[in-house]
Simulated scan of single mutants.
Amino acid sequence: MLRNLWGPGDVASYFGIPVQTVYQWRHKKYGPPCRKIGRHLRYKPEEVESWFNSLEA
């Protein structure tokens, strides 16, 4: 069963950044993986956390 999926606003809130930065990351092929459902971007919270943990300190 899927946990609730996050939208760009949820990802921005998680990182404490502007939502526009999340859209810029996607445009630059950077950031956590996401999927497009219709015209909406959705993120799996565990993938967002995993991506963050993979960044070098």
Rank of each mutant, 00 (worst) to 15 (best):
V19W: 00
F15D: 13
Q24K: 14
S54G: 12
W25C: 13
K28S: 12
E56H: 04
S54Q: 08
L55A: 06
R35F: 00
R26M: 01
W51H: 15
Y14T: 15
I17T: 09
H40K: 05
I37T: 13
Q20F: 02
Y30H: 11
Q24N: 08
V11A: 11
Y14E: 15
Q24P: 00
P45Y: 09
F52E: 11
G31S: 08
F52H: 15
M1F: 10
P32A: 14
G16R: 06
K36W: 00
E46I: 06
A12P: 06
Y23F: 10
L5Q: 12
F15W: 15
N53M: 10
E47K: 11
R26V: 05
A12L: 03
I37N: 11
Y23Q: 12
R39K: 06
L5A: 12
L5S: 07
W51Y: 15
P45C: 05
Y14N: 11
Y43S: 01
P33M: 01
K36I: 02
M1E: 11
K29S: 09
P32S: 14
P8F: 01
G9A: 08
D10F: 00
T21Q: 11
P32Q: 11
P32Y: 05
P8N: 08
W25K: 09
W51L: 14
E56K: 13
L5H: 04
Q20N: 07
F15G: 10
S13E: 15
N4V: 08
E56V: 11
W25F: 04
E47T: 07
K44W: 02
H27L: 02
G7M: 04
N53F: 07
M1Y: 11
N4C: 06
S54D: 09
V48W: 10
E56Q: 14
T21C: 05
P8R: 07
W25D: 07
K36S: 08
R35H: 01
A12V: 01
L41D: 14
V19P: 07
P8Q: 09
Q20K: 06
S50Q: 14
K44C: 00
V22R: 02
W6I: 00
R39Q: 03
A12T: 06
R42W: 00
R42E: 03
W6E: 05
R26E: 00
K28I: 03
G9S: 08
Y23T: 07
E46C: 14
T21I: 05
E47F: 01
F52I: 14
L55S: 08
G7F: 00
G7T: 09
C34M: 04
P8A: 11
H27W: 00
R39Y: 05
V22T: 01
K36Y: 07
K28A: 09
P18G: 13
H40R: 14
R39L: 01
G9Q: 05
H40G: 09
W6V: 03
I37C: 13
R26G: 07
T21N: 06
R39N: 15
V48S: 12
V22N: 05
Y23N: 13
R35K: 12
S50V: 03
W51M: 10
L2H: 11
Y30V: 09
G16E: 07
P18W: 02
R39P: 08
K29R: 13
E56T: 09
F15A: 14
K28T: 04
P33H: 02
S13C: 15
C34Y: 04
R42L: 04
K28D: 08
Y30S: 14
W25H: 02
